[in-house]
């Protein structure tokens, strides 16, 4: 039985396979409409989410399966003090696969150690969010046709941004990927990612506080939100939230085929005026999230 807790649980060939299945689902959705007939996905969301939960649910429905679960901890037994281990043990009697979001880091790993059915980590605090990374990878692949040799700019909150950490880990396994890390000094990428991932693998990267200076060299620009919920201090959040705001003017120096990604939700870090730019791919990215989750559910349920 397989789980997906960290994006690195998947080999690059498994990721290639998931991307290939997702592309086939996009081409021929009817072929997949009954693949999960009679199967149930439990969405255990101990923390609010719109996109991730709904895309998991839509993914399962489009595969012919059903969905049960809860969307906040208050409506589950965890409000009464039930452990993650007990919750997943019980849910295993009612469902075939679990997608779990939890504010505590490592909760899905604890779940995977106790569960009798596959666990998908749908986000654990500021730690991992592997299905977002799969979504990002599918979008980059569909837009650029490759991973090798890309210059990828990551902009905003690189300290707490779990999507950024996972994406760096995933892309660092391909050849000649260069990272441009754009953030204010207070929100730079953690030292351990620099040392244990980038430097350990001899991957080219630069750190800068200026988006304008590096814009012309980027093939992909991955924008992130400065997340209020990751700060213990409200004043720090207010001071840093408007560090980068992407506008049509800033995009004048960008490559014509650069693609702009964002895991969403955005607050104000991408101006609404950018939405009509053909390089803006963040809504396509959200749509791709459903297809790659369909591919993942099929893989973990071992459905042919």
């Amino acid at each position: 039985m397989r789980n997906l807790i960290d994006i690195l649980d998947l080999t690059t060939s498994e990721i290639d396979e998931l991307i290939s299945v997702a592309n086939d689902i996009i081409e021929s959705p009817k072929k997949y409409a009954h693949k999960c007939d009679g199967k149930k996905l439990a969405t255990l969301f101990f923390e609010p989410s719109t996109r991730t939960r709904l895309s998991f649910e839509a993914a399962m429905y489009e595969l012919g399966g059903n969905v049960l679960g809860f969307s906040e901890a208050q409506s589950s037994s965890s409000a009464k003090g039930e452990s993650v281990a007990d919750t997943v043990k019980v849910v295993g009697y009612y469902a075939d696969i679990i997608a779990m979001r939890h504010p505590k880091e490592g909760a899905p790993m604890v779940a995977s150690m106790k569960s009798d059915i596959p666990i998908i980590n749908a986000g654990d605090g500021g730690h991992n969010h592997p299905t977002q990374t799969l979504t990002d990878l599918l979008t980059i692949y569909r837009e650029k046709g490759r991973f090798d040799g890309l210059t990828v700019g990551l902009c905003g909150d690189l300290k707490f941004g779990r999507t950024v950490h996972s994406l760096i880990g995933a892309l660092s396994r391909y050849n000649n990927v260069k990272f441009v890390l754009i953030s204010p000094n207070e929100l730079t990428i953690p030292e351990y990612i620099k040392k244990e991932v980038l430097e350990a693998k001899n991957i080219e990267f630069v750190e800068t506080a200026s988006l304008d200076e590096v814009m012309p060299e980027l093939d992909v620009l991955y924008m992130t939100r400065v997340q209020r919920e990751r700060f213990f201090n409200e004043q720090d959040y207010i001071r840093l939230k408007d560090s980068y705001i992407l506008t049509p003017e800033k995009l004048l120096s960008a490559k014509k085929d650069m693609c702009i990604l964002h895991p969403l939700p955005r607050v104000n870090e991408i101006s609404v005026a950018v939405d009509s730019d053909p390089r803006a791919k963040y809504f396509v990215q959200a749509q791709n999230g459903k297809y790659i989750r369909m591919a993942l559910i099929l893989k973990l349920l071992e459905v042919e």
């Binding site: 993650v84 281990a85 505590k104 490592g106 604890v110 654990d124 500021g126 244990e196």
Partner: peptide, 21 residues
């Protein structure tokens, strides 16, 4: 020591560390 870690709330969960470097 991470206040966001699951070990702060999950009962009887062993505190396990692995050597990464």
């Amino acid at each position: 020591k991470n206040p966001r870690c699951i070990t702060t709330v999950e009962q009887e969960l062993p505190h396990v560390f692995k050597l990464t470097d």
